[in-house]
């Protein structure tokens, strides 16, 4: 895994959003994924209306948020889904109060601090991260429209009381979010990279954090 400081384009975007001071020094996982590209912020400059541009930028960022690597752990119920087809987690898992599974069958019963290779199985690896856990109940994304996800993301009542700046930092820096771009053998990654996602979120914030309908 290679790790490098944020690309110039992101720094530029953050500067434009007036967020550099809040975020620096920020690092992210720049490893790209085979999940395809994310549009750069600049590609939205042709949308004259700032409000519409903001919506379009969030819609682009939502390609990451709704990717199985992300949304599998933002389920509608308190049980995660699994795999590219987002089937219910096998075995049955529930979040419990900790969001880390019940004692006796915690997430960490199987998921380690890193991805773990397994041999002989089509699964290839058990994904892992030091902070492996289910998103809080308020952040249930499955079954929501992109607009509904957007409104949840910026609602401080439901997003862990995160400011817009906190959101950019979270998307760009959080270790568990970053895991999505190196999900282990046998799993696809979302499009783009963590810095590119953070750049989009920053640009979305800068353009007014408007939500698609």
């Amino acid at each position: 895994m290679t790790k490098r400081t944020l690309t110039l384009s992101l720094v530029a975007a953050l500067a434009a959003a007036g967020l550099v001071a809040a975020l620096a020094p920020i690092t992210g996982y720049a490893e790209t994924s085979g999940g395809g590209a994310l549009k750069a912020v600049s590609e939205f400059s042709s949308i004259a209306d700032a409000k519409e541009r903001s919506k379009a930028i969030f819609a682009e960022a939502s390609r990451v948020l709704t990717h199985p690597r992300c949304i599998n752990c933002h389920p509608a119920t308190r049980s995660p889904t699994q795999g590219e087809d987002m089937h219910p987690h096998v075995p049955l898992m529930i979040a419990a109060d900790s969001s880390m599974g019940p004692a006796g069958l915690a997430c960490s019963s199987c998921h380690g601090a890193e991805n773990r290779g397994i041999v002989g199985s089509r699964l290839k690896s058990i994904p892992g991260n030091a902070h492996w856990q289910l998103a809080p109940e308020s952040m249930a994304w499955q079954g929501l429209t992109v607009g509904e996800i957007c409104r949840q993301v910026k609602d401080t009542e439901r997003n862990g009381n995160r400011s817009h700046a906190d959101l950019v930092k979270h998307m760009g820096e959080d270790h568990l979010v970053g895991w999505a771009w190196h999900p282990g053998e046998g799993r696809s990654a979302p499009p783009g990279s963590q810095p590119e996602l953070a750049a989009l979120i920053a640009a979305w914030v800068h353009t007014g954090a408007e939500c698609p309908d």
Binding site: S108, S109, G112, R116
Partner: peptide, 10 residues
């Protein structure tokens, strides 16, 4: 003290 699956625990 925590239950783990030893078949996937390096």
């Amino acid at each position: 003290g925590q239950a783990v699956r030893s078949c996937v625990t390096p």
